[in-house]
Design a protein around this nucleic acid. Sequence first.
DNA 1: GGGGGTTTGTTGTCCGGCCAAGTAAAACAC
DNA 2: GTGTTTTACTTGGCCGGACAACAAACCCCC
Lengths: 170, 170
Amino acid sequence: MCSTPAGRSDECGPSPRPSVTERPGPVSHAIVRVARLHRMLAGQLLRRVGLHPSQELVMMQLWEAGPQRLSDLARLLGTDAATMTRTVQRLEQGGFAKRAPSPTDGRVTMVEATTASQGLRAEVERVWEELEHSVAGDLDGAERDGVLTVLDRMEQSLEQTLGRVRTQQE
Amino acid sequence: MCSTPAGRSDECGPSPRPSVTERPGPVSHAIVRVARLHRMLAGQLLRRVGLHPSQELVMMQLWEAGPQRLSDLARLLGTDAATMTRTVQRLEQGGFAKRAPSPTDGRVTMVEATTASQGLRAEVERVWEELEHSVAGDLDGAERDGVLTVLDRMEQSLEQTLGRVRTQQE
DNA sequence: GGGGGTTTGTTGTCCGGCCAAGTAAAACAC
DNA sequence: GTGTTTTACTTGGCCGGACAACAAACCCCC
Protein backbone atom coordinates (compact mmCIF):
# COMPACT_ATOMS: atom_id res chain seq x y z
CA MET A 1 0.00 0.00 0.00
CA CYS A 2 0.91 3.61 -0.03
CA SER A 3 2.57 3.39 -3.40
CA THR A 4 1.14 6.44 -5.10
CA PRO A 5 4.03 8.62 -6.18
CA ALA A 6 2.36 11.81 -5.04
CA GLY A 7 1.52 10.56 -1.59
CA ARG A 8 -1.17 12.27 0.38
CA SER A 9 -0.34 12.02 4.01
CA ASP A 10 -3.17 9.76 5.08
CA GLU A 11 -2.50 6.91 7.45
CA CYS A 12 0.54 5.89 5.57
CA GLY A 13 3.99 5.84 7.04
CA PRO A 14 5.63 8.59 9.04
CA SER A 15 4.62 11.85 7.28
CA PRO A 16 4.70 13.98 10.41
CA ARG A 17 1.70 16.07 9.38
CA PRO A 18 -0.06 17.78 6.48
CA SER A 19 3.19 19.68 6.20
CA VAL A 20 4.19 22.02 3.45
CA THR A 21 1.45 20.93 1.19
CA GLU A 22 -1.15 22.63 3.34
CA ARG A 23 0.22 25.72 4.89
CA PRO A 24 1.78 28.67 3.18
CA GLY A 25 0.32 29.20 -0.30
CA PRO A 26 -2.59 26.87 -0.68
CA VAL A 27 -3.49 27.87 -4.20
CA SER A 28 0.11 27.81 -5.35
CA HIS A 29 0.65 24.40 -3.90
CA ALA A 30 -2.52 23.06 -5.38
CA ILE A 31 -1.55 24.29 -8.81
CA VAL A 32 1.89 22.81 -8.56
CA ARG A 33 0.49 19.45 -7.52
CA VAL A 34 -2.20 19.34 -10.16
CA ALA A 35 0.22 20.43 -12.86
CA ARG A 36 2.72 17.77 -11.93
CA LEU A 37 0.13 15.03 -11.91
CA HIS A 38 -1.24 16.32 -15.15
CA ARG A 39 2.15 16.20 -16.78
CA MET A 40 2.86 12.78 -15.35
CA LEU A 41 -0.36 11.39 -16.72
CA ALA A 42 0.37 12.98 -20.06
CA GLY A 43 3.74 11.28 -20.03
CA GLN A 44 2.16 7.91 -19.37
CA LEU A 45 -0.45 8.28 -22.06
CA LEU A 46 1.98 9.66 -24.61
CA ARG A 47 4.21 6.72 -24.12
CA ARG A 48 2.15 4.63 -26.48
CA VAL A 49 2.62 7.24 -29.16
CA GLY A 50 6.35 7.64 -28.68
CA LEU A 51 6.17 11.28 -27.68
CA HIS A 52 7.26 13.08 -24.55
CA PRO A 53 5.20 15.66 -22.72
CA SER A 54 5.16 19.01 -24.51
CA GLN A 55 6.15 17.43 -27.79
CA GLU A 56 2.50 16.64 -28.36
CA LEU A 57 1.67 20.32 -28.02
CA VAL A 58 4.13 21.17 -30.74
CA MET A 59 2.71 18.49 -33.00
CA MET A 60 -0.86 19.56 -32.39
CA GLN A 61 0.06 23.10 -33.22
CA LEU A 62 1.76 21.97 -36.40
CA TRP A 63 -1.15 19.76 -37.39
CA GLU A 64 -3.67 22.49 -36.83
CA ALA A 65 -1.91 25.52 -38.19
CA GLY A 66 0.51 24.06 -40.69
CA PRO A 67 4.13 25.09 -41.22
CA GLN A 68 5.27 27.72 -38.82
CA ARG A 69 8.30 29.63 -37.80
CA LEU A 70 10.19 28.20 -34.88
CA SER A 71 9.94 31.38 -32.89
CA ASP A 72 6.17 31.44 -33.33
CA LEU A 73 5.99 27.90 -32.07
CA ALA A 74 7.97 28.87 -29.03
CA ARG A 75 5.86 31.93 -28.34
CA LEU A 76 2.55 30.18 -28.83
CA LEU A 77 3.53 27.39 -26.52
CA GLY A 78 4.88 29.79 -23.96
CA THR A 79 8.38 28.47 -23.99
CA ASP A 80 11.88 29.43 -24.96
CA ALA A 81 13.37 29.57 -28.43
CA ALA A 82 16.28 27.52 -27.18
CA THR A 83 14.00 24.85 -25.79
CA MET A 84 11.96 24.83 -28.97
CA THR A 85 15.09 24.43 -31.04
CA ARG A 86 16.03 21.25 -29.28
CA THR A 87 12.50 19.91 -29.09
CA VAL A 88 12.12 20.36 -32.84
CA GLN A 89 15.48 18.71 -33.37
CA ARG A 90 14.24 15.67 -31.49
CA LEU A 91 10.93 15.66 -33.30
CA GLU A 92 12.78 15.83 -36.59
CA GLN A 93 15.10 13.07 -35.53
CA GLY A 94 12.07 10.98 -34.66
CA GLY A 95 10.48 11.55 -38.04
CA PHE A 96 7.60 13.65 -36.73
CA ALA A 97 8.62 17.08 -37.96
CA LYS A 98 10.61 18.60 -40.76
CA ARG A 99 12.60 21.81 -40.91
CA ALA A 100 13.33 24.03 -43.83
CA PRO A 101 14.95 27.44 -44.04
CA SER A 102 12.61 30.19 -45.08
CA PRO A 103 13.26 31.33 -48.64
CA THR A 104 12.29 34.91 -47.87
CA ASP A 105 14.05 35.35 -44.55
CA GLY A 106 17.41 33.78 -44.02
CA ARG A 107 17.06 33.77 -40.29
CA VAL A 108 13.89 31.84 -39.79
CA THR A 109 13.47 28.11 -40.05
CA MET A 110 10.03 26.84 -40.86
CA VAL A 111 8.78 23.77 -39.05
CA GLU A 112 6.11 21.45 -40.35
CA ALA A 113 4.64 18.07 -39.54
CA THR A 114 5.73 15.17 -41.68
CA THR A 115 3.11 13.22 -43.56
CA ALA A 116 4.13 10.19 -41.56
CA SER A 117 3.20 12.02 -38.38
CA GLN A 118 -0.39 12.40 -39.56
CA GLY A 119 -0.96 8.82 -38.52
CA LEU A 120 -0.46 9.76 -34.92
CA ARG A 121 -2.75 12.72 -34.94
CA ALA A 122 -5.93 10.90 -34.04
CA GLU A 123 -4.35 9.04 -31.18
CA VAL A 124 -2.66 12.11 -29.80
CA GLU A 125 -5.98 13.89 -29.82
CA ARG A 126 -7.51 10.93 -28.05
CA VAL A 127 -4.80 11.14 -25.42
CA TRP A 128 -5.50 14.80 -24.98
CA GLU A 129 -9.20 14.11 -24.59
CA GLU A 130 -8.45 11.52 -21.95
CA LEU A 131 -6.32 14.06 -20.15
CA GLU A 132 -9.06 16.63 -20.23
CA HIS A 133 -11.58 14.11 -19.10
CA SER A 134 -9.44 13.07 -16.20
CA VAL A 135 -8.78 16.61 -15.09
CA ALA A 136 -12.18 18.13 -15.71
CA GLY A 137 -14.46 15.18 -16.33
CA ASP A 138 -16.48 15.45 -13.15
CA LEU A 139 -17.05 19.17 -13.36
CA ASP A 140 -20.38 20.52 -14.46
CA GLY A 141 -20.58 23.34 -16.96
CA ALA A 142 -20.69 26.11 -14.42
CA GLU A 143 -17.74 24.79 -12.49
CA ARG A 144 -15.75 24.37 -15.66
CA ASP A 145 -16.49 27.92 -16.73
CA GLY A 146 -15.66 29.21 -13.30
CA VAL A 147 -12.34 27.43 -13.20
CA LEU A 148 -11.45 28.58 -16.67
CA THR A 149 -12.24 32.15 -15.77
CA VAL A 150 -10.21 32.03 -12.60
CA LEU A 151 -7.29 30.31 -14.28
CA ASP A 152 -7.31 32.95 -16.96
CA ARG A 153 -7.19 35.69 -14.37
CA MET A 154 -4.35 33.88 -12.67
CA GLU A 155 -2.50 33.68 -15.94
CA GLN A 156 -2.83 37.35 -16.60
CA SER A 157 -1.83 38.26 -13.09
CA LEU A 158 1.21 36.00 -13.18
CA GLU A 159 2.23 37.38 -16.54
CA GLN A 160 1.93 40.87 -15.23
CA THR A 161 3.98 40.40 -12.09
CA LEU A 162 6.48 38.39 -14.07
CA GLY A 163 6.98 41.31 -16.40
CA ARG A 164 7.18 43.65 -13.45
CA VAL A 165 9.79 41.54 -11.72
CA ARG A 166 11.82 41.17 -14.87
CA THR A 167 12.09 44.87 -15.62
CA GLN A 168 12.65 45.60 -11.97
CA GLN A 169 15.58 43.25 -11.75
CA GLU A 170 17.53 44.47 -14.74
CA MET B 1 6.92 45.33 -28.07
CA CYS B 2 5.60 41.84 -27.94
CA SER B 3 8.47 40.68 -25.80
CA THR B 4 6.66 38.68 -23.17
CA PRO B 5 8.01 35.16 -23.25
CA ALA B 6 4.58 33.64 -22.88
CA GLY B 7 3.05 35.64 -25.66
CA ARG B 8 -0.66 35.94 -25.93
CA SER B 9 -1.57 36.11 -29.54
CA ASP B 10 -2.84 39.66 -29.65
CA GLU B 11 -1.88 41.95 -32.48
CA CYS B 12 1.63 40.79 -32.42
CA GLY B 13 3.26 39.15 -35.35
CA PRO B 14 1.82 36.31 -37.40
CA SER B 15 0.22 33.96 -34.84
CA PRO B 16 -2.39 32.60 -37.24
CA ARG B 17 -5.08 32.31 -34.60
CA PRO B 18 -5.79 31.41 -30.99
CA SER B 19 -4.46 28.06 -32.06
CA VAL B 20 -3.71 25.14 -29.83
CA THR B 21 -4.02 27.12 -26.69
CA GLU B 22 -7.75 27.41 -27.13
CA ARG B 23 -9.17 24.35 -28.68
CA PRO B 24 -8.86 20.79 -27.52
CA GLY B 25 -8.58 20.61 -23.74
CA PRO B 26 -9.26 24.05 -22.39
CA VAL B 27 -8.81 23.19 -18.75
CA SER B 28 -5.68 21.18 -19.38
CA HIS B 29 -4.16 23.96 -21.40
CA ALA B 30 -5.05 26.55 -18.82
CA ILE B 31 -3.43 24.52 -16.08
CA VAL B 32 -0.30 23.97 -18.10
CA ARG B 33 0.01 27.67 -18.83
CA VAL B 34 -0.65 28.81 -15.30
CA ALA B 35 1.73 26.24 -13.87
CA ARG B 36 4.51 27.27 -16.22
CA LEU B 37 4.09 30.94 -15.45
CA HIS B 38 3.92 30.13 -11.77
CA ARG B 39 7.16 28.22 -11.92
CA MET B 40 8.79 30.92 -14.00
CA LEU B 41 7.86 33.60 -11.51
CA ALA B 42 9.07 31.40 -8.69
CA GLY B 43 12.38 31.06 -10.48
CA GLN B 44 12.73 34.80 -10.81
CA LEU B 45 11.86 35.49 -7.20
CA LEU B 46 14.04 32.70 -5.87
CA ARG B 47 16.98 34.07 -7.72
CA ARG B 48 17.67 36.57 -4.99
CA VAL B 49 17.86 33.76 -2.50
CA GLY B 50 20.10 31.54 -4.58
CA LEU B 51 17.61 28.73 -4.88
CA HIS B 52 16.01 27.09 -7.86
CA PRO B 53 12.33 26.25 -8.17
CA SER B 54 11.36 23.20 -6.11
CA GLN B 55 14.40 23.56 -3.91
CA GLU B 56 12.47 26.05 -1.84
CA LEU B 57 9.79 23.46 -1.25
CA VAL B 58 12.35 21.06 0.15
CA MET B 59 13.77 23.73 2.39
CA MET B 60 10.37 24.82 3.65
CA GLN B 61 9.54 21.24 4.44
CA LEU B 62 12.81 20.84 6.31
CA TRP B 63 12.34 24.08 8.20
CA GLU B 64 8.83 23.19 9.25
CA ALA B 65 9.13 19.55 10.06
CA GLY B 66 12.78 19.14 10.93
CA PRO B 67 15.07 16.29 9.89
CA GLN B 68 13.42 13.79 7.65
CA ARG B 69 14.11 10.74 5.62
CA LEU B 70 14.88 11.37 2.00
CA SER B 71 12.12 9.12 0.81
CA ASP B 72 9.59 10.99 2.93
CA LEU B 73 10.73 14.24 1.42
CA ALA B 74 10.22 12.82 -2.03
CA ARG B 75 6.80 11.46 -1.23
CA LEU B 76 5.59 14.60 0.48
CA LEU B 77 6.70 16.76 -2.39
CA GLY B 78 5.23 14.40 -4.92
CA THR B 79 8.45 13.68 -6.69
CA ASP B 80 10.87 10.90 -7.31
CA ALA B 81 13.45 9.50 -4.94
CA ALA B 82 16.04 9.86 -7.67
CA THR B 83 15.18 13.50 -8.18
CA MET B 84 15.21 14.12 -4.47
CA THR B 85 18.61 12.53 -4.15
CA ARG B 86 20.16 14.97 -6.58
CA THR B 87 18.23 17.96 -5.30
CA VAL B 88 19.44 17.25 -1.78
CA GLN B 89 22.95 16.79 -3.10
CA ARG B 90 22.81 20.27 -4.59
CA LEU B 91 21.28 21.75 -1.48
CA GLU B 92 24.01 20.15 0.56
CA GLN B 93 26.65 21.40 -1.82
CA GLY B 94 25.18 24.88 -1.47
CA GLY B 95 25.30 24.75 2.29
CA PHE B 96 21.54 24.68 2.77
CA ALA B 97 21.03 21.10 3.85
CA LYS B 98 22.92 18.37 5.62
CA ARG B 99 22.73 14.62 5.28
CA ALA B 100 23.42 11.94 7.82
CA PRO B 101 22.88 8.20 7.71
CA SER B 102 20.26 6.96 10.08
CA PRO B 103 21.78 5.16 13.06
CA THR B 104 18.87 2.77 13.35
CA ASP B 105 18.38 1.91 9.69
CA GLY B 106 21.37 1.57 7.45
CA ARG B 107 19.39 2.29 4.33
CA VAL B 108 17.90 5.65 5.10
CA THR B 109 19.64 8.98 4.99
CA MET B 110 18.23 11.74 7.10
CA VAL B 111 18.11 15.24 5.67
CA GLU B 112 18.00 18.41 7.71
CA ALA B 113 18.37 22.13 7.20
CA THR B 114 21.65 23.69 8.20
CA THR B 115 21.65 26.44 10.77
CA ALA B 116 23.07 28.73 8.13
CA SER B 117 20.00 28.15 6.01
CA GLN B 118 17.77 29.54 8.73
CA GLY B 119 18.76 32.98 7.59
CA LEU B 120 16.97 32.45 4.32
CA ARG B 121 13.79 31.17 5.79
CA ALA B 122 12.06 34.50 6.21
CA GLU B 123 12.86 35.63 2.72
CA VAL B 124 11.83 32.34 1.15
CA GLU B 125 8.52 32.61 2.93
CA ARG B 126 8.17 36.14 1.68
CA VAL B 127 8.79 34.91 -1.85
CA TRP B 128 6.16 32.28 -1.42
CA GLU B 129 3.71 34.86 -0.15
CA GLU B 130 4.39 37.00 -3.17
CA LEU B 131 3.76 34.01 -5.39
CA GLU B 132 0.49 33.29 -3.70
CA HIS B 133 -0.51 36.91 -3.90
CA SER B 134 0.24 37.05 -7.57
CA VAL B 135 -1.67 33.89 -8.35
CA ALA B 136 -4.62 34.34 -6.03
CA GLY B 137 -4.41 37.91 -4.88
CA ASP B 138 -7.44 39.20 -6.71
CA LEU B 139 -9.72 36.35 -5.72
CA ASP B 140 -12.32 36.83 -3.05
CA GLY B 141 -12.80 34.22 -0.37
CA ALA B 142 -15.51 32.32 -2.17
CA GLU B 143 -13.57 32.13 -5.39
CA ARG B 144 -10.48 30.98 -3.58
CA ASP B 145 -12.39 28.25 -1.81
CA GLY B 146 -14.05 27.20 -5.01
CA VAL B 147 -10.79 26.96 -6.86
CA LEU B 148 -9.17 25.04 -4.06
CA THR B 149 -12.02 22.60 -3.99
CA VAL B 150 -11.96 22.07 -7.72
CA LEU B 151 -8.20 21.73 -7.81
CA ASP B 152 -8.39 19.17 -5.07
CA ARG B 153 -10.93 17.17 -7.02
CA MET B 154 -8.72 17.41 -10.07
CA GLU B 155 -5.80 16.16 -8.08
CA GLN B 156 -7.69 13.16 -6.82
CA SER B 157 -9.04 12.37 -10.23
CA LEU B 158 -5.64 12.64 -11.85
CA GLU B 159 -4.11 10.47 -9.18
CA GLN B 160 -6.77 7.89 -9.69
CA THR B 161 -6.49 7.64 -13.46
CA LEU B 162 -2.72 7.73 -13.15
CA GLY B 163 -2.85 4.69 -10.94
CA ARG B 164 -5.29 3.05 -13.28
CA VAL B 165 -3.08 3.69 -16.29
CA ARG B 166 0.01 2.48 -14.51
CA THR B 167 -1.40 -0.86 -13.46
CA GLN B 168 -3.06 -1.27 -16.81
CA GLN B 169 0.20 -0.82 -18.67
CA GLU B 170 2.31 -3.29 -16.77
C1' DG C 1 25.19 52.06 -49.23
C1' DG C 2 27.10 51.44 -44.95
C1' DG C 3 26.70 51.14 -39.80
C1' DG C 4 24.05 50.35 -35.54
C1' DG C 5 20.36 48.04 -33.55
C1' DT C 6 17.04 44.22 -33.77
C1' DT C 7 15.26 39.81 -34.68
C1' DT C 8 16.09 34.64 -35.13
C1' DG C 9 18.17 30.71 -34.19
C1' DT C 10 21.77 27.82 -32.10
C1' DT C 11 24.76 26.00 -28.44
C1' DG C 12 26.52 25.63 -23.56
C1' DT C 13 25.24 24.99 -18.95
C1' DC C 14 22.48 24.02 -15.23
C1' DC C 15 18.20 22.51 -13.08
C1' DG C 16 13.92 19.50 -12.05
C1' DG C 17 11.76 15.40 -13.43
C1' DC C 18 11.01 10.51 -14.92
C1' DC C 19 12.41 5.77 -15.97
C1' DA C 20 15.30 1.93 -15.50
C1' DA C 21 18.89 -0.53 -13.45
C1' DG C 22 21.68 -1.46 -9.82
C1' DT C 23 23.38 -1.80 -4.73
C1' DA C 24 22.91 -2.30 0.01
C1' DA C 25 20.40 -3.00 4.01
C1' DA C 26 16.54 -4.58 6.36
C1' DA C 27 12.45 -7.66 6.84
C1' DC C 28 10.44 -11.84 5.93
C1' DA C 29 10.16 -16.86 4.89
C1' DC C 30 11.29 -21.46 5.67
C1' DG D 1 20.44 -19.61 9.81
C1' DT D 2 20.03 -19.19 5.01
C1' DG D 3 17.37 -17.63 0.96
C1' DT D 4 13.94 -14.52 -0.82
C1' DT D 5 11.54 -10.46 -1.05
C1' DT D 6 10.95 -5.68 0.07
C1' DT D 7 12.64 -1.11 1.05
C1' DA D 8 15.85 3.04 0.50
C1' DC D 9 18.89 5.21 -2.02
C1' DT D 10 22.02 6.02 -5.89
C1' DT D 11 23.47 6.47 -10.71
C1' DG D 12 22.97 6.82 -15.79
C1' DG D 13 20.27 8.35 -19.45
C1' DC D 14 17.03 11.22 -21.46
C1' DC D 15 13.72 15.14 -21.77
C1' DG D 16 11.65 19.87 -21.02
C1' DG D 17 12.82 24.24 -19.37
C1' DA D 18 15.44 28.58 -18.31
C1' DC D 19 19.40 31.74 -18.76
C1' DA D 20 23.49 33.49 -21.13
C1' DA D 21 26.39 34.14 -24.89
C1' DC D 22 26.83 34.02 -29.51
C1' DA D 23 26.44 34.28 -34.88
C1' DA D 24 23.91 35.31 -38.78
C1' DA D 25 20.52 37.63 -41.24
C1' DC D 26 17.59 41.48 -41.55
C1' DC D 27 16.01 46.40 -40.92
C1' DC D 28 16.25 51.13 -40.56
C1' DC D 29 18.16 55.38 -40.76
C1' DC D 30 21.41 58.66 -41.96
